[in-house]
Design a protein around this nucleic acid. Structure first.
Length: 287
DNA sequence: AAGAGGCCCTGATAGC
DNA sequence: TGCTATCAGGGCCTCT
């Protein structure tokens, strides 16, 4: 599910609600995620104060005041829900701090802050929580990741050089986190559509002008999605449980057999599997 | 080394 | 109603 914009939306609300707060308690209902959560995870985080919340690519990074940190990845179906303790909650039979209540299906982790409970839910378990002792460990973890589209490093020289000699199609490179970090299947489709570049086009055959467009529209699409609160296809919700709105603005994703709405184009959106992922494009205006 | 393909997991939906 | 097959927003691994 969550690509860079969705993770950014989650990050922004976490910033408002848990920054400078102390983790009072943690309940782990199910340790099975992509990496099994070790028993010592609780010991590593309980009692610590959140200094800052950052995001890199599709990863959330929770920094503590003692310079340790942990990373959250939402995988395909992970969501974070924040529940605030207020008078309304106190009046219900389910006690805010009670560990007696049964978890909702697929709730894996609950972090209890003063007056806020943060719940991590993940049906498909492709996400993870991972603790790091310091920034250096974190740096090693991310060392193979390419720049984000917003980074200065994601520039014409970098992109054009990277594509030189690359025989694979452009679509799979937009999904390749070693090339660029944060783009997933939805946005890769949307970006190439706006660039008017066919997803099957070989990377090495892209002109400098093509590369410029890829850089420009990568930023453009992701920024717009963030403005609209991200995209909600099935699972994605912000921390209050509300859907994003960017799915209403998809030009190609999940629009198979519908008319291409590029100005003056008479094409019809097609669907094709490329590198094992559904790919949507207009065969008339994308060349 | 680059590229193709498979796999991790559960749930929703479509087709019979 | 209930079975089976297919597909889903990510990322890693192996094989060639």
């Amino acid at each position: 599910m969550p690509e860079l914009p969705e993770v950014e939306i989650v990050k922004q609300s976490l910033e408002k609600k848990i920054k400078l707060k102390k983790i009072q308690n943690i309940i782990i209902w199910n340790r099975n995620l992509r990496f099994k959560i070790p028993i010592k995870f609780e010991k590593n985080v309980v009692g610590k104060v959140v200094k800052d919340i950052k995001r890199f690519s599709k990863y959330l990074i929770i920094h503590f005041t003692d310079y340790t940190l942990f990373v959250i990845h939402l995988g395909m179906s992970g969501t974070i829900h924040l529940v605030e303790k207020n008078n309304k909650n106190l009046n219900t039979n389910t006690s805010f701090y009670s560990s007696q209540i049964l978890p909702k299906k697929h709730n894996h982790i609950e972090l209890y802050f003063d007056k806020v409970k943060m719940i991590y839910n993940d049906p498909r378990r492709f996400g993870f929580f991972k603790f790091f002792h310091n920034e250096e460990e974190l740096y090693k973890f991310f060392k193979n990741y390419g720049p984000e589209p917003f980074s200065q490093l994601f520039n014409l020289k970098y992109v054009f050089n990277f594509f030189k000699n690359k025989n694979k199609n452009i679509k799979s490179f937009l999904l390749d986190q070693r090339f660029v970090s944060g783009i997933g299947n939805i946005y890769a489709n949307e970006i190439l559509y706006l660039c008017k570049i066919k997803p099957t086009k070989k990377a090495k055959s892209l002109s400098k002008e093509n590369c410029r467009k890829i850089i420009y529209f990568s930023k453009y699409v992701l920024r717009n999605s963030i403005k609209k609160g991200g995209s909600s296809i099935k699972d994605f919700r912000n921390t209050l449980g509300y859907k994003g709105k960017f799915q209403k603005e998809f030009r190609v994703y999940q629009r198979e057999n519908l008319d291409c709405d590029m100005k003056g184009c008479i094409g019809i959106i097609k669907k094709k599997i490329i590198s094992n992922r559904s790919t949507f494009f207009c065969s008339v205006c994308q060349k």
